[in-house]
Design a binder for these strands. Sequence first.
DNA 1: CGGAATCATGGGTATATACCCGCGAAATGA
DNA 2: TCATTTCGCGGGTATATACCCATGATTCCG
Lengths: 133, 133
Amino acid sequence: MSKDLCHCILLRKASRRVSSYYDEALAPLGVNIAQFSLLRNINRMAPVSLTDLAARVELDRSTVGRNAKVLERMGLVEIRPGKDQREATLLVSAPGKAILLEGAPLWDRAQADIETRLGADGAGRLRDLLAAL
Amino acid sequence: MSKDLCHCILLRKASRRVSSYYDEALAPLGVNIAQFSLLRNINRMAPVSLTDLAARVELDRSTVGRNAKVLERMGLVEIRPGKDQREATLLVSAPGKAILLEGAPLWDRAQADIETRLGADGAGRLRDLLAAL
DNA sequence: CGGAATCATGGGTATATACCCGCGAAATGA
DNA sequence: TCATTTCGCGGGTATATACCCATGATTCCG
């Protein structure tokens, strides 16, 4: 059988393609899908520590720290010390909330497009398969 | 509906998890799945230009160039000018071929593990769904 | 209370990835 | 042949991602 069918490589390719698709949809906002998703998660959990956020989004703590710093530079997120002086707590700024509102319909459209491309129950089946990995 | 089900984010997460799984499987060789896969592609197409290789693996030319340079530093790939003086042609070195041989069974096992986790026809369905994206 | 273990973050380093730009090489057409 | 266009690559810059280690804060015992 063809050796091109490495599940991992197929996943990585699909991930790049789909990310790029969402990125284009969100481009008018100046954020990519990774940033938009992180912003949403911060908003839901705010005020949240890096550690908790990292656990939620399944990324390394240091990765979340650096990604959050980018959002901070963009003015979308505020990073301030928590009661525990070790903690950096994150919250979405007013401009960040505006981005979330403006982005919602753009994200919805990309999401719907993908579902169309996957067919009626394709999206659900894909979700289940990915969850099994 | 839960807003956690962004197809893109689910794909990215799965891609990270699965990549990490293959990376661990290949760790004894000192290469990760991206490098191993690139090495395989270079081997199949050798001697190959960066542009052709990039088209094959669906990555940006500059990305392939940098990734290939890492493989070169590792001594697994040779980069030499082609007849066309603009071209850099890639080929797998002897140590690189050894890595391909040693890696094959490790890759096979990871691949089989994933198929087990996906179930009988899960792998096929996943492949089809990813191809639709 | 004070030393030890634990915990949160940050920074260093490295790869993966993409976009843009400039340079030198090659092809093309007048 | 020579100017123009096209082509292939490398480098700059930026984000995404992970691992390891240092540092400083907190907690936990003895």
